[in-house]
Design a protein around this nucleic acid. Structure first.
Lengths: 258, 258
DNA sequence: CGACGTGTTGATCTCTCTCAATTAGAGTGG
DNA sequence: CCACTCTAATTGAGAGAGATCAACACGTCG
């Protein structure tokens, strides 16, 4: 079944979207929820928040942000240096959690901006604790999701730290394609939405805009992919994976090269 | 006061170290534990594991690793590409958690190696769930710690993606110094242990060994720090912070530079 | 229509990598 | 005590991936 169109639904008790329809539910960990757990989450939900494209959900340095869930649309987390250099930490797609990291005092917080029109589910700040207290299962899932989010950042760090520009871009395209395709019924056969500008790609991979453009074009000219009208088409996944050094990611490596 | 010698303690019920002595307890979140929580943790603890320096705790790709806590010593998490390029994801000091991320199926796992002789606390694999089930407080703390760990990786990603070699190294030295100093009574006045080789620094910052050496020497010659006999001395924190662009980390940045 | 954002391409420039060689210390064995 | 080996640190030189600078094309929008 294709993604349902954004039509107005009969308003629910608290928010506009019933938690039963939340994209989060599609995640493997959340499929076995009891009704109690549903109503618990629903009771913690404060409201929905709609933002346009390229707007700011959380300002960098903001520490009092509530907890969010991304219902629809794309967004990204980022940090910047004093002179404006920006690093995108991760891209957020429907179903992603936002703001768990913000609660740490000492560590400087990151900002969150939207890439597209987006709908967020807003939770009270202490929902995290409530969730843990009233449902260990849900609490466990939160931990799991947080750890999973970190593993995404780990992968990016590996890319940015050790992969060439070409490898990084191939890697990013594959990863984003997979994540976006998983949200669609056709699995990406007709492409997936790709709302990033090349500047976003550059900032996500620690590259300059110009070099990002040139590398992107090179891959496209080689027939590995195609980006047009805000959509990404994977034309040669095999070749793309090969140029990403994807296979060499996490496998027992031939370390002692000598 | 120098690092206390690793003397043998009277053996406890389960492991060799009473959980009441665990370095984890020093963390802000853990100071208010009830006796129940202590005994819960103690009951989940399986044993202690001692490794020498430069040994492997968790192999890359290993998915069945138990949960660990680092009691004493230094270690690091890493990933490698197929041709041997390695990226260190984070450094682990006493009190750090290990293995929460390993439980995710799809995401490729990372390896964990020791830098020094180290003592780990070993927990059963399903301790994570047990902890959540039997103590929401502890479960919440786990989530908190996981999120905190991610914020460390976020910072590294910002460095590797957007900081120059000099800035990266300054940043790493400051961060490691702070963490190590926090574990000592003198707060680092007499330096802190620094068991990393330059190769580790390079792998942690996405730099080559040679360039790491040259940059390190430059900072040292400039009088910002000094590394000798496996110890790090911060000679000019202010200047070090300045060259790290530390101040510009997370503050509301002057984005619109135009 | 001009201003602006995004994408594209060519021409330098430079930071960092790679290659190579040397030094110093720790360990080992004769 | 000394030759031999290994690892880690160091330094110089040359090469290159990617950054910076500069222009231009194209579409949208007020």
């Amino acid at each position: 079944m294709p993604t349902p169109p954004l039509q107005t639904r009969p308003t629910e008790i608290i928010g506009e979207t019933a938690c039963g329809d939340c994209p989060l539910r599609r995640l493997p960990l959340f499929i076995n929820h009891t009704d109690d757990e549903h109503s618990l989450v629903q009771s913690l939900k404060q409201r929905e928040l709609r933002l346009g494209a390229m707007e700011t959900l959380i300002h960098e340095g903001q520490t009092d942000a509530p907890l969010y869930t991304l219902l629809r649309g794309w967004a990204f987390r980022y940090k910047t240096l004093s002179d404006g250099r920006r690093q995108i930490l991760s891209f957020l797609l429907a179903g992603d959690f936002i703001g768990v990291q913000q609660k740490m005092a000492d560590a400087a917080a990151h900002g969150v901006d939207t890439l597209t029109d987006a709908v967020f589910c807003v939770f009270k700040r202490d929902s995290l604790w409530e969730l843990h207290r009233r449902s260990p299962t849900m609490g466990f899932n939160i931990t799991w999701l947080t750890a999973h989010e970190e593993s995404l950042v780990d992968d990016t760090l590996l890319s940015v730290g050790r992969r060439s520009a070409e490898e990084r871009i191939a890697m990013l395209l594959i990863l984003l394609f997979k994540r976006a395709a998983a949200l669609q019924a056709d699995g990406g056969a007709a492409g997936v939405p790709f709302p990033l500008t090349q500047q976003h790609v550059a900032d996500g991979l620690g590259l300059s805009l110009v070099h990002t453009n040139k590398t992107l074009r090179k891959l496209e000219r080689r027939g590995l992919h195609r980006i047009a009208d805000g959509r990404l088409f994977m034309l040669d996944v095999k070749a793309m994976a090969r140029t990403a050094d994807l296979y060499g990611d996490g496998r027992p490596p031939p370390r002692p090269l000598v």
